[in-house]
Design a protein around this nucleic acid. Structure first.
Lengths: 259, 259
DNA sequence: CTGTCGATATCGTGG
DNA sequence: CCACGATGTCGACAG
């Protein structure tokens, strides 16, 4: 073997236009080996659980992950049309659905994925399978992400004057009766300051959240306490701005990263 | 041809262990034909846009949809580790990245997907491709879903007594300064009632939302107006329940469907 | 485009 | 398990 591209232990096994029986066998084997399985073909999809849904026949791409997740994708949209979260149990079998009017006695390949709590189940029934694949590989590395709310918090803690001159952070995630406050501190005059951080432009919900924290702290610290509430985000919507004014809250424009 | 399974116009074309050049050609051709493309292999992933992220080499499954969506899946999780929304432009090319320390002069296959507003771009760089597939098919049917907030609304409109005896709905989506109210009506005593619907157990946010509607309506209808606010959901959390009591709001337990 | 809100939201963290 | 809040949330719909 010549040196060059490092050899990966990853494998991909593919069946093209398999019979339903061959597809069933291959999928069962791949699930057993904890491979990631994909199936493309014409299918119907039914879901019953937190809600319920049905989807008539169409050509779709199904992915079964070894952690129990299931995804049904059409040729459109970022989101799967149907899915099942991780932790589910996958099952595959061939079924001669004589009773099923739609199937009309023809054999079908059935993928089922379900879990007990909450009780929910996804059933994908293939009339026709064009491809089955089984993938195995390794993925040791984690995603590193920046531009998050956590980055915004670090930015303020490292340079509190970004919020305002004289601001002193005293705690993060300080608990109140209404939940944990992002940053808790004092201003130059010694008044208590509650800071709510948002990584992007915010609407009314964020103002409501800040208001609950301020109210809770004014109670915790006794009635005469004067607590300032500051919302920190790149920008606010008009409605949110009006709510801020109505409730005597403040806004500071700041982004998660300096550029 | 014997009768039996109806013939589908769907097609699936697969390359196993292609050279990077062959993979590139096949992907370019498939994108041209507006097929759904999947690529499995060892790759790094970089994203720059609303935030930014990097992901070191690992074995992953990439899907490029003809509507411009891109998805990068690992063997775990329901959500893609990286993605691009519909409306993006996909591009593929082979690159001898001599400057790139990681690539170490070896040839790589690059998938890029981006859009101008917001300006963001995803770059998947394959060291090794184990499989390339191109899928085409049709999916005319839409998902039918039940157990939604809309179902809960219908349930109450058809049988207002589920909310309380004497309740009369007057409008849905009634506009207020704080946004549109789910159901607007009157109780047996002629008092204005604002109803906020949630299809599942709710926390503090929903109470805040209801409160904003009640406040807005009390202003709209002049100061002495007595407006009742009723939250309708299967159940509420403790904290939300306390907020309801604090703000003089009410709760009715109801699910989106009767069973 | 922006604003607003629902979602089978998902996901992580903490109790 | 439940609760709470962040998310590159995504989507749909209205203005």
């Amino acid at each position: 073997m010549t040196s060059g591209t490092p050899t990966s232990s990853a494998r991909a096994v593919t069946l093209e236009q398999p019979t339903l029986g061959a597809a069933c066998e291959a999928i069962a084997d791949a699930l057993e080996r904890e491979a990631l399985v994909t199936v493309f073909g014409r299918c119907t999809v039914d879901y019953e659980g937190r809600a319920s849904s049905t989807l008539e026949a169409g050509d779709r791409h199904v992915m079964l992950k070894p952690d129990g997740a299931a995804l049904v994708h059409t040729d459109e949209g970022q989101q799967p049309v149907n899915w099942q979260p991780p932790g589910c149990t996958h099952d595959v079998f061939c079924d001669r659905a004589g009773d099923d009017i739609d199937a009309n006695g023809a054999e079908t390949l059935v993928l089922e994925s379900g879990r007990p709590t909450p009780d929910e189940r996804l059933c994908v029934r293939f009339q026709d399978v064009l491809q089955v694949s089984a993938f195995s590989g390794t993925d040791e590395n984690e995603l590193t992400l920046s531009g998050t709310e956590e980055d915004l918090r670090q930015r303020i803690l490292e340079e509190p004057t970004l919020l305002e001159a004289g601001f002193r952070p005293l705690a993060t995630e300080r608990e109140t009766a209404a939940g944990a406050v992002d940053i808790y501190g004092e201003d130059a005059a010694g008044r208590t300051v509650v800071v709510e951080l948002k990584r992007r432009r915010v609407g009314p919900d964020a103002v409501g959240q800040l208001r609950r924290y301020v109210d809770a702290l004014e109670r915790d610290l006794h009635a005469d306490a004067d607590v300032r509430g500051i919302l920190v985000a790149p920008s606010v919507t008009d409605r949110a701005d009006r709510l801020l004014v109505d409730h005597g809250l403040e806004f500071v424009s700041l982004e998660p990263t300096s550029e």
